[in-house]
Amino acid sequence: KRPMNAFIVWSRDQRRKMALENPRMRNSEISKQLGYQWKMLTEAEKWPFFQEAQKLQAMHREKYPNYK
């Protein structure tokens, strides 16, 4: 399994919040909304999620050194 990228790190919590706030919203619509919201974030707002993704990638490399 691949390490999470910055968008996935960010969207994990956002998806839960959105699903709780909009229980009738379909998963496909939630995904569209999340994509739009991510695009609207500034680079500074995205930065912590890129840092977290880099940490996860480093841990993944250490744990699975022969992963493609």
Score class of each variant (00 low, 15 high):
K1W: 08
R2W: 09
R2P: 12
R2T: 08
R2Q: 10
P3E: 15
P3Y: 07
P3T: 13
P3M: 05
P3R: 09
P3H: 13
M4Y: 04
M4T: 15
M4P: 09
M4V: 14
N5Y: 04
N5A: 08
A6D: 03
A6R: 05
A6Q: 01
A6I: 00
F7G: 09
F7V: 00
F7M: 03
F7C: 04
F7W: 01
F7P: 01
I8Q: 12
V9K: 07
V9D: 08
V9R: 01
V9C: 05
V9Y: 05
W10Y: 07
W10N: 14
W10P: 08
W10E: 02
S11R: 00
S11Y: 03
S11H: 01
S11L: 02
S11C: 11
S11G: 02
D13H: 04
D13T: 08
D13L: 13
D13K: 03
D13Q: 05
D13Y: 08
Q14D: 00
Q14F: 04
Q14P: 06
R15F: 08
R15Q: 04
R15H: 13
R15P: 03
R15G: 09
R15W: 05
K17R: 07
K17H: 08
K17M: 06
K17S: 02
K17V: 08
M18P: 05
M18G: 02
M18R: 01
M18V: 07
M18C: 06
L20Q: 14
L20W: 05
L20D: 14
L20E: 15
L20A: 14
E21H: 02
E21R: 03
E21V: 09
N22W: 01
N22F: 04
N22P: 01
N22A: 00
P23A: 04
P23H: 03
P23T: 07
P23E: 03
R24T: 15
R24K: 15
M25R: 02
M25K: 04
M25Q: 06
R26H: 10
R26Y: 09
N27R: 02
N27C: 06
N27V: 04
N27H: 13
N27Q: 13
S28H: 06
S28I: 09
S28P: 14
S28L: 03
E29Q: 05
E29R: 02
E29K: 02
E29W: 14
E29D: 15
E29L: 00
E29H: 08
E29Y: 00
I30G: 00
I30M: 09
S31E: 15
S31A: 07
K32F: 04
K32Q: 07
Q33H: 08
Q33D: 08
Q33N: 01
Q33T: 11
L34I: 08
L34R: 00
L34E: 00
L34N: 05
L34T: 00
L34S: 02
G35W: 13
G35A: 13
Y36C: 10
Y36T: 09
Y36Q: 15
Y36H: 14
Q37W: 03
Q37M: 09
Q37H: 08
W38H: 01
W38C: 04
W38P: 04
W38M: 03
W38D: 06
W38L: 01
W38T: 00
W38K: 05
W38E: 01
L41D: 02
L41M: 15
T42W: 02
T42K: 04
T42A: 02
T42Q: 00
T42R: 05
E43S: 07
A44E: 13
A44S: 10
A44W: 02
A44R: 09
A44K: 06
E45I: 08
E45L: 03
E45T: 01
E45F: 07
K46A: 00
K46F: 01
K46T: 04
W47G: 10
W47A: 15
W47T: 12
W47L: 14
W47N: 08
W47I: 09
P48S: 03
F49H: 00
F49P: 00
F49W: 14
F49T: 05
F49K: 00
F49G: 00
F50E: 15
F50P: 03
F50A: 06
F50R: 12
F50V: 15
Q51P: 02
Q51R: 09
Q51D: 11
Q51M: 09
E52A: 08
E52Q: 11
E52I: 07
A53T: 13
A53K: 15
A53F: 06
Q54S: 05
Q54T: 06
Q54E: 11
Q54A: 12
K55V: 05
K55F: 04
K55P: 07
K55L: 06
L56A: 08
L56Q: 08
Q57Y: 08
Q57S: 09
Q57H: 05
Q57K: 04
Q57T: 12
Q57W: 11
Q57F: 11
Q57L: 05
A58P: 05
A58S: 10
A58R: 10
A58I: 06
A58E: 13
A58W: 09
A58H: 15
M59V: 13
M59N: 08
M59S: 10
M59W: 11
M59Q: 13
H60L: 05
H60W: 05
H60F: 02
H60N: 11
H60M: 02
H60G: 12
H60Y: 12
H60T: 08
H60R: 11
R61H: 11
R61F: 14
R61I: 05
R61D: 15
R61Y: 13
R61Q: 10
E62Q: 09
E62K: 07
K63S: 11
K63N: 11
K63V: 11
K63C: 11
K63F: 12
K63E: 14
K63Y: 09
K63P: 13
Y64A: 15
Y64T: 11
Y64V: 13
Y64Q: 14
Y64M: 09
Y64H: 15
Y64C: 11
P65F: 08
P65Y: 13
P65N: 14
P65H: 12
P65S: 14
P65V: 12
P65E: 14
N66C: 12
N66S: 14
N66P: 12
N66L: 09
N66V: 11
Y67D: 12
Y67K: 13
Y67F: 07
Y67V: 15
Y67E: 15
Y67N: 14
Y67I: 13
Y67P: 10
Y67T: 15
Y67G: 14
Y67Q: 14
K68R: 04
K68W: 07
K68E: 15
K68G: 15
